[in-house]
C-alpha cells in the first residue's frame, strides 16, 4: 500500500473508458456550459482542470432522494439498497475530506446500509490541488481541508502531461492493477509534490486561529452577537445545506405508486436551516428562530461533530457562501467567535 506510480493523463483517461464495462463512471464534466460532477459515457467528457461545482460529489453516496424500503398492499416489505459499481474520478481535497466525514458519520454506531453500500461499491479517485482553486469564497486552508488523509481510494498528482498515482486502499490497488498501465516510481516523488503544494498553499490564508479549540470556543459563545447579526439576515432557504459536502440531515417520506398497490419509503435531503425542521406533531418548533438555526448548523460544523471527527466538519469549499443569497459565511462566524475579525 501507499505505492506510487506514474502514467500519462491520456492513459488515465483511457483507463476510465476501459473500466466502463464494469463500472459507471462519474467525473467533473460540462453540462450546459457549467461544471458539475455527473455520470460520463466517455472520458472525452471529463474536465481535468478544476472549476468549482454547485453540488459536491456527495450525491453519489447520499443522493437527493433514494428509496430505502419497498412494500405492497398485500403485506410484502423489503429493504432497498441501490448501490452500483462506481468510479468517481477527480475529487478534490475539500470533497475528499467531505467524503471522509460523511463515511465516518454514516458508519458511526448504527451503520447506514444504504450509504455504506454505495461507498463500498465505489472507487474514489482523488486529485491533489497544486494550488488553491479559482474560487474566492473557498477557505479550505482555514480548516486544513486542503490536506488529504483518508476518504479516497486512489490519489493523483498533476505533473502536467502525467499523473502521479498513489494507491490508498485495496480497492484502489485493484483498480490500478486491472485498468491502468503504469510505471512504479519512488514514493518520494509524491511527497515532493505535496511539499511544493504546501509551499503554494502557505501563500494563502493559514488555519483559523485556535482551530483545534473551536469546539470549546463555540460551546462558550451562545450569547455572542454574531448569531443574531448573521441569523437575522438568513432567508431560511436551505441553499447552504443543499450544497454542503458534509450536511447529511434527511427526511423520510412514504409514497404509493400510481397503481395504489405498491409503495416505497424514500429519504431525501433535508436541512436544519429550514423553518420547520424541528417541528413536532403537537406544533412546537424546537428551533424557531433563524438565529437558533444558524447557531445549530455552525455548532454542528465546528463543535458537536468536530469533536467526534477530530477535524472541522466544514471543509471550506465555499459552496454555501456562493449559494447564499445574503452572503452568510461560516468564515465570518468563526472569525467573530475566535476573535480574528
Amino acid at each position: 500500500m501507499d505505492r506510487v506510480f506514474k502514467a500519462t493523463k491520456q492513459e488515465m483517461l483511457e483507463s476510465l473508458d476501459r473500466c466502463m464495462s464494469t463500472y459507471r463512471v462519474a467525473a467533473l464534466t460540462n453540462k450546459d456550459g457549467r461544471p458539475m460532477y455527473d455520470f460520463v459515457t466517455s472520458s472525452k467528457q471529463v474536465i481535468l482542470e478544476y472549476r468549482p461545482t454547485v453540488l459536491p460529489p456527495k450525491k453519489f453516496f447520499f443522493p437527493p432522494t433514494e428509496t430505502i424500503l419497498e412494500y405492497s398492499k398485500d403485506g410484502k416489505m423489503k429493504t432497498v439498497i441501490e448501490a452500483e459499481p462506481l468510479v468517481l474520478f477527480g475529487v478534490r481535497p475539500c470533497d475528499i475530506n467531505g467524503i471522509k466525514i460523511l463515511t465516518e458519520a454514516f458508519a458511526d454506531v448504527n451503520g447506514d446500509p444504504n450509504y455504506l453500500s454505495r461507498r463500498e461499491n465505489a472507487i474514489v479517485i482523488g486529485i491533489e490541488c497544486a494550488k488553491k482553486c479559482d474560487n474566492d469564497d473557498a477557505f479550505c486552508t482555514k480548516v486544513n481541508a486542503h490536506k488529504v488523509t483518508t476518504g479516497h481510494d486512489i490519489l493523483l498528482a498533476d505533473l502536467g502531461d502525467d499523473y502521479l498515482i498513489k494507491e490508498a486502499t485495496d480497492k484502489g490497488t485493484a483498480f490500478i492493477n486491472e485498468f491502468l498501465k503504469v510505471n512504479k516510481v519512488d514514493a518520494k516523488e509524491f511527497d515532493d509534490f505535496i511539499k511544493r503544494k504546501e509551499a503554494a498553499f502557505a501563500q494563502e490564508d493559514s488555519a483559523f486561529k485556535d482551530l483545534e479549540r473551536l469546539p470549546e470556543i463555540f460551546s462558550k459563545s451562545n450569547e455572542h452577537p454574531i448569531w443574531n447579526q448573521e441569523g437575522e439576515r438568513c432567508l431560511s432557504c436551505g441553499s447552504c445545506v443543499m450544497v454542503c459536502p458534509t450536511c447529511y440531515c434527511f427526511d423520510v417520506k412514504d409514497q404509493w405508486d400510481l397503481n395504489l398497490k405498491d409503495g416505497k419509503r424514500v429519504r431525501q435531503w433535508d436541512g436544519c436551516m429550514l423553518c420547520d425542521f424541528a417541528v413536532v406533531a403537537a406544533g412546537e418548533n424546537f428551533r424557531n428562530t433563524k438565529e437558533a438555526r444558524l447557531k445549530h448548523r455552525m455548532n454542528r460544523k465546528f463543535n458537536y461533530l468536530m469533536k467526534k471527527h477530530g477535524q472541522a466538519v466544514c471543509v471550506g469549499c465555499g459552496r454555501c457562501v456562493r449559494a447564499c443569497l445574503v452572503d452568510i459565511s461560516p468564515k465570518t462566524v468563526v472569525e467573530a467567535l475566535n476573535g480574528e475579525a
Partner: peptide
C-alpha cells in the same frame, strides 16, 4: 421530531 431513530437524520438533535 424524529425521522430515522438511529442517530443519522439530525431531526431530534438537542444541541450536540
Amino acid at each position: 421530531r424524529m425521522k430515522c431513530s438511529v442517530g443519522k437524520c439530525g431531526h431530534c438533535q438537542i444541541g450536540g
